[in-house]
Structure formats: structure tokens, C-alpha cells
Design a binder for these strands. Structure first.
Length: 424
DNA sequence: TCTGGGGTCCTAGGACCC
DNA sequence: TCTGGGGTCCTAGGACCC
């Protein structure tokens, strides 16, 4: 049996934990750049505020109902998440951290006990220790546990816990779940399925297996088997190594000059290098992209992207920044109004792997030396001790393109300075 | 005026190998 | 008229997740 523990309205709940006066009040959290609504408390949902709505489109509604609005504070959410996960890890023998606000627990060893009781205990414990409300779904497969969780969330009479065990319980849960609400079925496949009169999860579970295999491929076939109670998705206890790392942002204002883009791209490249070192990986390829607004109607849209091989697999900020600057120069077009840029590192090589390919022309591309490694270690150590951004490369600079964050809450769990600023 | 960020997996097709 | 069998690697595109 698998349990899926999912935090309720996670980002909104994190903000509310430190603002108890906002309990029972509508709260929303905005995406980066204060662009879209990405989290809503139950009260905000009740006002009809939709997920993903641009903030400017519901500004009046937010104001009218005195909704508390927050910029996203990922330092806070990340830290709150690790508290919740650490706790869950103590409450079950095996845990798979599936996302920032979700975890699967292996409940196999609890099946002789009352699962619903134990899930209730988990809920109370997490709430008491972290302040975060969670819902729990338990079932014989991960996909069914997702469905159980959804039922627990949508129906208050379940008190946050739903266990699907018998065939009857499972089938009736499938009948009341729409096909687009199944984990792994997105918009495109829903459309296709509905056109075939496959409307509920029960329809999907009993649909023609060859047809599913043909049109939804192996992924769809697996979902069908999971709905029928055959577990295809195992617990993943260790997170697989990342295959790519991306840092990208929309700009707080329009950017047109190469110099400004260089600052932004250098900053993203630097962040990618830090993430690489954290992941203990070397990248062998680098992609840079720059883009105008996708909503631009002037006919002057542009999406420029280019990928290049790095001379050596590396995690060195300086090498990555240099390569990124060269790529940027190649895709930059004058006269465009840029709104977004990003850097992606890929082609990962494990740092311990000895099979690093050396350059064909070493005299042109000197092999990275020990000094570079030591320098990066020193930079990381200083930033760890004195706070993010205490030292950085000179070309990293967020002055001109900085995303707007007008409603940012303090980092109360990760920054001493922010705690001192809390009014008593 | 204002519209997020970061990932994975799978398939098909083309190129290549013996 | 008839033209094998078994592979790998890479990329682009499409689907999905949070």
C-alpha cells in the first residue's frame, strides 16, 4: 500500500503559518515577477480566483475582498518543505519525496493496523510540528493513492484521509473521478479520451487495452494497469541525478541592449554553476535562450536559442559564464524588446566518473586546474556563511532586469536578519 | 501597462554499425 | 521476380508533472 501525503495549498499555508491572523482569510501567492496566481487558500478559491490567472486580471477582485497577496518566497517554501519531509521520514519506513509539497510513503508494513487511524496520526503530527495542513490518500498503487488523496481533499467529511482498499471502494472512487483528474492524463489526452466517450477513471480502467497502448503509448498503458490495481510505479527512494539544470527569469521590465542581456545571462549562468556544484555534477553542454514577450502583438517576436558543447565537462562558474556570453552574442538581435532569458546546462557527467573526454586541442582550451576548483569552493563557502550573493563574479548583476517582488514576506526560517525584522 | 519556473519521459525517424 | 536481421545513438517534437 502507498500513501500520498500532499500539503494543502502549500505556498499559501507556508505564508499563513507565520501570520496566524490570516487563518480563515483569503490568501494568494504570486509567481515570480508577481505575474500569475500560483497558490490560493480555500477562502481565495471560494472567491472564484482561478489557478494561473494573471494578477492584473483579478486585481479588482483581490482588492474588493481584501485578499492577502504574497510574492513567492522560495527560500521559505523550500525550508518548510524539508521540515515536513523530515518529519514524514520519521513516521514511515520509506519515503519518496515527489515534489516540494508531496511525498509517497510505503505503508506495506502497516497493513495489519488501521491505516486510516495511522494516517490521522500523521496529519496531526505534521500540523502540530510544522503548522502545515496535509491530506493523505492510501491505496494499492501510486495512481490510486493520488485519486484517494484528491477525494480526501475535496470532501471535508473525510477529515483529510481516504483509504481505498477493497474492489468496491476502488471502483466507486474511479466512477467519481473524471478522466482529466487522473495523474498522468493531461489536456491533450483528456480531449482524445472524451471524444472516445471515455469520461471517468472507471471508463479508462475498463477501456480497450490495445487502443490505450496504441494512442497513449506505454505511459497510458501503465496508468491503466495502475488504476486496475496492478502497481507499475515503484517507490523511488533516492532522487536520480539531474540530467539538466535550468535557470531562467522573466524581466521586471523590457530589456533591449546586449549589455543588459549579458548581465542577466551571466547571472543565470552563475546560478546554474552553483546548482551544478551542489549536485556534484559536471555539464558538457550549455544552452542560452532569449525571448520577447509571447503576448507581443507587434509582429516583432523572437525566440533565440543555441546550444554549444563546453570545451570540457565543467562546473566552474567562470568557464560557464564565458561560454554563455559567446552563445548570447551569437543569438542576440538588435531592435527586439526582450522579456525573458535563461541558461540550461546539460550532458551531465558525474564528478567521480574518470572517463572525462579531453579536448582535441588542449593548447587552445586549457584543462581546468586545481586553482579554479579551489576558487569555486571558496566562493561557495563564503556565500554559505555570509549569505547568498555575498561574493559573486563581477559580470553577474541583477540591477537592470530584476524581477519585481512587491509583496515578499521575510525569510523567517532561513535568515537571521529577517527574524530580527519581525515586529513584536 | 501588467501573463512563472523547472523538470522528465517517450516516440519516430534518420544516421550509423556489423 | 526475387533484395536480411539485429542493433545503437542522436535529435526534434509532443506529452506529461509540480
Amino acid at each position: 500500500m502507498f500513501a500520498l501525503v500532499d500539503c494543502n495549498n502549500f505556498y499559501a499555508s507556508c505564508e499563513r503559518t507565520f501570520r496566524p491572523e490570516l487563518r480563515l482569510r483569503p490568501v494568494v501567492v504570486l509567481s515570480n515577477n508577481d505575474g500569475c496566481i500560483i497558490a490560493r487558500s480555500e477562502e481565495a478559491k471560494a472567491l472564484g480566483i482561478q489557478m494561473g490567472t494573471p494578477e492584473f486580471k483579478c486585481r479588482d477582485l483581490l482588492k474588493k475582498h481584501d485578499v492577502s497577496v504574497f510574492s513567492s518566497n522560495y527560500a521559505l517554501y523550500g525550508d518548510m518543505s524539508s521540515r515536513v519531509m523530515r518529519l514524514l521520514g520519521k513516521l514511515a519506513p520509506e519515503i519518496e519525496v515527489y515534489s516540494i509539497d508531496e511525498a509517497f510513503l510505503d505503508m506495506t508494513s502497516f497493513t495489519r493496523f488501521d491505516l486510516a487511524d495511522y494516517a490521522g496520526h500523521i496529519r496531526k503530527t505534521v500540523r502540530r510540528h510544522t503548522g502545515i495542513p496535509v491530506c493523505i490518500g492510501i491505496a494499492p498503487t501510486k495512481t490510486l493513492a493520488k485519486i484517494a488523496n484528491r477525494i480526501a481533499k475535496k470532501n471535508p467529511e473525510y477529515q483529510g484521509v481516504c483509504v481505498l482498499k477493497s474492489h468496491e471502494e476502488i471502483y466507486s472512487a474511479l466512477e467519481r473521478t473524471k478522466v482529466e483528474d487522473i495523474w498522468g492524463i493531461g489536456r491533450q489526452w483528456s480531449k482524445l479520451l472524451q471524444a472516445k466517450r471515455i469520461v471517468t477513471a472507471a471508463d479508462f480502467a475498463t477501456a480497450s487495452a490495445p487502443w490505450i497502448r496504441k494512442h497513449l503509448h506505454i505511459v497510458g498503458a501503465r496508468i491503466q494497469a495502475e488504476l486496475q490495481g496492478t502497481s507499475c510505479l515503484e517507490m523511488e527512494l533516492v532522487r536520480p541525478a539531474k540530467q539538466s539544470i535550468c535557470t531562467s527569469r522573466s524581466f521586471g521590465r523590457s530589456v533591449s541592449t546586449l549589455a543588459e542581456l549579458q548581465q542577466a545571462v551571466a547571472t543565470f549562468a552563475g546560478k546554474c554553476a552553483v546548482k551544478l556544484r551542489k549536485e556534484n555534477a559536471l555539464a558538457s553542454m550549455l544552452t542560452v535562450f532569449i525571448a520577447t514577450s509571447p503576448f507581443d502583438e507587434s509582429g516583432n517576436r523572437y525566440w533565440g536559442t543555441r546550444t554549444a558543447a563546453l570545451p570540457h565537462p565543467t562546473q566552474d562558474s567562470i568557464a560557464i559564464l564565458r561560454a554563455a556570453e559567446t552563445i548570447l552574442a551569437g543569438i542576440f538581435q538588435d531592435g527586439k524588446v526582450y522579456k525573458k532569458a535563461g541558461v540550461i546546462v546539460s550532458g551531465m557527467v558525474s564528478k567521480v566518473s574518470s572517463s572525462t573526454t579531453l579536448s582535441l586541442f588542449p593548447e587552445e582550451e586549457p584543462v581546468p586546474n586545481q586553482r579554479d576548483t579551489t576558487l569555486m569552493q571558496a566562493m561557495d563557502a563564503i556565500n554559505h556563511r555570509y549569505g547568498h550573493g555575498a561574493v559573486h563574479l563581477a559580470s553577474e548583476n541583477s540591477e537592470s532586469w530584476k524581477p519585481s517582488q512587491d509583496h515578499l514576506s521575510p525569510c523567517r526560517t532561513t535568515s537571521w536578519n529577517d527574524i530580527l525584522e519581525v515586529k513584536v
